[in-house]
């Protein structure tokens, strides 16, 4: 009966009942229009009125409980957890620093682009000493050109 108004204020109604709107109604989180519609629904719906009463009672009970002191070991365990995380972070940092030092201080292998023109000329020169000079050197008379 108040589905549309209630939905606008704080969420859907389920099967025409307040359902999840109950907590919003108890916590005053519904819009005025939704609150009015929800209260009107509860007034005319025995199921929702009962649910509302139970939820209100449970809420009051919980709020009436005394505060609980944590056990004595709680805070040290939290602090130890923090220390453990710090130790792990320190170890990771040290490892990275070690990697950086070793990696940066070790000699880098130089990048090499083979001088292909020179290689084929050197080959032809030495092959012409060992073999027939005409057939080995004639290809060098053709311009040797390997370009990137």
């Amino acid at each position: 009966m108040v589905i549309g108004a209630a939905a606008e204020g704080g969420g859907p109604m389920t099967g025409g009942h307040l359902a999840d709107l109950l907590s919003g109604l108890l916590d005053s989180e519904l819009t005025p229009a939704a609150r009015i519609a929800a209260e009107a629904h509860a007034d005319g719906c025995a199921d929702c009125a009962h649910e509302l009463a139970l939820a209100s009672e449970a809420r009051a009970l919980i709020r009436s409980l005394p505060p609980v002191e944590p056990p004595a070991s709680f805070y040290p365990s939290v602090i130890a957890g923090r220390r453990r995380r710090r130790a792990v972070a320190a170890l990771v940092g040290a490892a990275l620093a070690g990697v950086a030092i070793v990696g940066l201080r070790s000699p880098q292998p130089s990048s090499v682009t083979p001088p292909v023109n020179q290689l084929v000329e050197d080959h032809a020169a030495t092959a012409s000493v060992a073999g027939d000079p005409v057939s080995e050197l004639a290809p060098v008379g053709v311009p040797v050109s390997f370009r990137p």
Binding site: S111, T113, P114, H123
Partner: peptide, 12 residues
Amino acid sequence: GLSLFEQAGRLR
């Protein structure tokens, strides 16, 4: 004939 050439470094 076959010529082999070695040069220290990493091929670019």
